[in-house]
Design a protein around this nucleic acid. Sequence first.
DNA 1: TCGCACACGTTATAGCATAACGCAATTGAT
DNA 2: ATCAATTGCGTTATGCTATAACGTGTGCGA
Lengths: 131, 131
Amino acid sequence: MGTPQLTKNQSLVMGALAHSDGPMSAYTILDKLRDHGFRAPLQVYRALDKLLEYGLVHRLESLNAFVACTCPHEHEHDHGVTAFTICEGCGQVTEFHDEAIEERLSSLVRTQNFKTEKTTIEIRGHCKSCA
Amino acid sequence: MGTPQLTKNQSLVMGALAHSDGPMSAYTILDKLRDHGFRAPLQVYRALDKLLEYGLVHRLESLNAFVACTCPHEHEHDHGVTAFTICEGCGQVTEFHDEAIEERLSSLVRTQNFKTEKTTIEIRGHCKSCA
DNA sequence: TCGCACACGTTATAGCATAACGCAATTGAT
DNA sequence: ATCAATTGCGTTATGCTATAACGTGTGCGA
Ligand SMILES: [Zn+2]
Ligand SMILES: [Zn+2]
Ligand SMILES: [Zn+2]
Ligand SMILES: [Zn+2]
């Protein structure tokens, strides 16, 4: 169960995100794709749902926006917990992963008898250039 | 610079959140406070802004909702990084803090020369009762 | 051929958040 | 006391984010 062939709409949305230098809201994506026949938000949201499911795209909860995954590996398996730094100045988003945090969180949560389904870690601040 | 005396609107919003058994959206708070004279979203959002600033309330980014802080200490100083488990079943939210995660994140971010302003950690899943 | 799953298109609606205006009360110099 | 600056408040209007509900078409296995 790898990543299926993307449909036309999914490819268009994926392309828009991949070629963007920062996160995009669904409505920004919609505007970028009007020339390709997109007319309504649902066309974007439906594609995003699938791309999120396939792990090709991440949602930034604190921005209500989306970014293409920058993971090196080929999305053959779920990458674990994903964390982001988000610069308030230039909008740059950096994705990173850390086993130590993942294990520590998992251990803390286990003491609550809580079953994790999705973990959000987002760090807002200023990048080196924007400090 | 502790927590100033709350204004009437701030107290009403704080009370609504404190007596709720789960997170509330700004519009839900508005509805709860109509009997107390609230008429417009801005009355809620302005109070929330202050309560967030004072550290009495937290915003859950993945829910677009707000919860009263459950920290034991008296909010005399910023508590560090705040994390939440959020049950998809019953809506229960649990706030917790962990030095180890805080330090690990801070160290990872330092390697990017990134200046952290606010950290969001939210774990969605199912609590013991809803498993 | 029938039934089902899935992607798609469209319209309408729901839910979340802020802009912009004006007014009133408070504070804290001068 | 007076003026200016700050802060809170109320109202209207607007903008941004996300989903509901309905119908269409296409592919595919029973
Ligand atoms: Zn990724
Ligand atoms: Zn930057
Ligand atoms: Zn707290
Ligand atoms: Zn639960």
